[in-house]
Design a protein around this nucleic acid. Structure first.
Length: 435
DNA sequence: TCTGGGGTCCTAGGACCC
DNA sequence: TCTGGGGTCCTAGGACCC
């Protein structure tokens, strides 16, 4: 039987961890195996992950925790604050395991990877993805679902079929399925990867309600409604890869952002919070060995407090020359904040964004820079930054800070009341025993 | 009282040049 | 006095993703 493959005969598999954060919490706690588990967003705000049992109880996604508290207690749901150190660690193990089976892979997110299968691998696709699934279960202890199709967009749809239908046993191969048209008919256009809320409203307005109708629609119409992005989606639905292959190795932005532990009306604590995020962003920047050319500051009121005056203001501050020096970043971010700050608002969230990132080793020489670089002052700053990063890595974030960042325990920092203990170091032992 | 964080890509529109 | 038009580069902002 002929396979529905890409024009070059290749297939794409999407490996997607089931209820990833909840599964991570369960992986370290065998006693929770069949219990409903829920993970909260930062600041213990709202539900961002639900185990299968929690979904079955009807715990809604994205709902504020305080509105669900009674219901969660009544149903004995186990609730965790999000523990990104743990999820990141397990994610790396999953990705390494996938790569051990299929090296031509692309990490898409913390819990998803695309695998490209061409030539002989495309012929043995089914066997390969089954091996991935059992290996991840055995080596890392996490369940994954896998969809197989000619393109990424179709692989996404195949994965959701694999998750929905128990008979699939975690794998669905759209490339050999006789019912592609039927599956696309059953897929609402808003469920297609890349079509969001606004896009699906536009499509529905034009009478396009399903993935199949999107696939078969007039391309000029789709371009008008959804720009080139929509045209690419349409190609992908037709089985022709149209989404960029390579992963951009260089970031274009670095963001540090967080909801404040309490609403803030005054400028002084906002300046501290902005400085704190500038310092945090600076750490990330140096970790990647990059410098940035501009620093953005943004303050937002709570969008959900509809009766309160709303404000969402952002400013970009150009640096005189690219830098990774925390004191430079803090100064720029604070200056930006002073420009956009207005009194009379209850601010709920602060963001610092670094853009115009570049690799200082590859920096092209600017006439203005000649003679100003790498002076003794620069060397001292660099040594200071390295020292701070090292101390903060070993002794914990916030051990060494700039005065502008305020106190480590200031009340504008976020809350994380129900953090799971860091047990991942122990799983090494577990893995050795099992292997 | 309590509502996530971090990222990418695309387009429109302004500045500037010839 | 006439006040063009096309190109490039940059940035802000929208939309989307997990």
């Amino acid at each position: 039987m002929a396979r529905f493959a890409a024009p070059d005969g290749s297939l794409t598999a999407l490996v997607d961890c089931d209820t990833f954060y909840a599964s991570c919490e369960k992986a370290g706690r065998p006693d929770l195996r069949d219990r409903p588990v829920v993970v909260l967003s930062n600041n213990d705000g709202c539900v961002v992950a639900r185990s299968r049992e929690a979904k079955r109880l009807g715990v809604p996604m994205g709902e504020p925790e305080y509105q669900l508290r009674r219901m969660l207690e009544d149903n004995h749901v186990v609730v965790f604050s999000s523990n990104y150190a743990l999820y990141g660690d397990l994610s790396r193990r999953v990705m390494r395991t996938i790569a051990s089976v299929a090296p031509d892979m692309e990490i898409y997110s913390i819990d998803e990877a695309f695998v490209r299968l061409s030539g002989a691998a495309a012929v043995n696709a089914d066997e390969i993805v089954r091996t991935i699934r059992t290996r991840v279960a055995r080596w890392v202890g996490l369940p994954v679902s896998i969809g197989l199709a000619p393109t990424k967009v179709l692989a996404k749809i195949a994965t959701s079929v694999a998750k929905k239908i128990p008979e699939c046993d975690g794998v669905f191969d759209l490339s050999v399925s006789p019912g592609v048209d039927h599956i696309l008919e059953k897929t609402p256009v808003g469920d297609v990867w890349g079509v969001g809320r606004k896009g699906s409203a536009k499509l529905r307005g034009a009478g396009i309600h399903t993935a199949r109708e999107l696939r078969d629609a007039d391309t000029a119409l789709i371009r008008r409604l959804l720009t080139i992005v929509g045209v690419n989606l349409q190609m992908e639905l037709r089985g022709v890869p149209a989404i960029r292959e390579e992963i951009p190795m260089t970031h274009t932005t670095i963001i540090s952002s967080r909801s404040l532990g309490r609403k803030i009306r005054d400028m002084e604590p906002l300046l501290e919070a902005v400085a704190w995020h500038a310092a945090r962003a600076g750490e990330k920047l140096r970790l990647k060995n990059l410098v940035c050319g501009a620093v953005g500051a943004r303050i937002q009121t709570a969008y959900y407090a509809e009766d309160q005056p709303q404000r969402d203001e952002m400013i970009m501050v150009r640096l005189a020359r690219p830098s990774d020096d925390t004191s430079v970043l803090i100064r720029a971010a604070r200056n930006g904040l002073r420009k956009i700050y207005r009194s009379g608002f209850a601010y709920a969230k602060v963001m610092v964004m670094l853009t115009d990132l570049s690799d200082p080793a590859k920096k092209q020489h600017n006439l203005l820079d000649i003679g100003t670089d790498a002076g003794p002052r620069d060397a001292r700053r660099r040594a200071l930054m390295e020292l701070m990063d090292r101390v903060n890595r070993v002794r914990g974030r916030g051990t060494l800070t700039f005065a502008a960042q305020g106190l480590k325990n200031a009340d504008w920092h976020m809350q994380r009341a129900r953090l799971s203990p860091a047990w991942t170091t122990d799983i090494n032992g577990l893995l050795t025993v099992r292997g």
